[in-house]
Amino acid sequence: MLVNSHHSITSLELRPPFGRLLKERFIRWVFMVCAFFAVVITFATLGMFVAESLPFFAQVSLGEFLGGIRWAPLHEPPSYGVLALVADTLVITAIALGVALPLGLLSAVFLSEYASFRLRQVCKPILEVLAGVPTVVYGFFALRFVTPLLQRTFLPQLSFWNGLSAGLVMGIMIIPLVASISEEVLFAVPRRLREAAYALGATKFEVTTRVVIPAASSGIGASFILALSRAIGETMIVALAAGRTPAWPPDPTRPMLTITTTIVNIATGDHEATAFIWSVLFALGFLLFLSTLVFNVASHVIVRRFRERFP
């Protein structure tokens, strides 16, 4: 006995109507094309940077580019040492992180461990809104408020354009970013860990510093990396407040030239479109692209690991 006989000849068909099948396929295809776009753009960006900076690296060796300290592409003879730019960028970044990391982390600890539920509900959207304030606003603040303030109080010798106030204000800009990501990971640390520590007689301080922060350390680290990448790629604040001349050795009280400002200078300058300077632009863009990409991917991977550990 295999199968009942009255079904042996069947009129049942469960095929999809042809029109519907076509429509479903078409719609799926349309959506796929949209998604494909994002992929295409990324590879186009990468491809463009490689292709366009080739003429530069054909003429300037990688060692000269990365090891040289004199950035003077328009001088005769030109010199393409990017180290001065990198150093200036890193000094400003370091100042920014010096402000953003402690303040951001403390804010996060406060919101996650000390603030009441209501306060947290109020503060989180405020942080989100502040994180989105246009950067040109911060740049204006650095140029027209922080620099004059510093000149009048602590540092009379500070120049009008300087890396210090750009870095300080960039730090303020990054605080909300660090605070909101760190707060999320701190808050995600499971209650059972906290309760276990409290059950052993730990104080709130001990629970926070010895249990919660270590448990969330990878996520906090990811927020720091993201802050770093954000600081390196920031353009408007430095273009407004840091000036446009490279400082070697890096001195934050003097004008500084970051990679991003150099890109702005080249792109907005009246250079011949075919000039060699154009490929310098792509070489610098490539450098910026790669370094931020590395940091972003690292932070992405770390956050994902964290989420897997404390879902």
């Binding site: 993201l226 954000r230 390196i232 790629g233 792109a267 863009g285 931020t292 990409l293 972003n296």
Partner: peptide, 14 residues
């Protein structure tokens, strides 16, 4: 996700 984190200057060059 990483495209979203790309510095705006890089997007500008593109």
């Amino acid at each position: 996700a990483n495209l979203a984190g790309m510095p705006s200057a890089v997007v500008g060059i593109f």
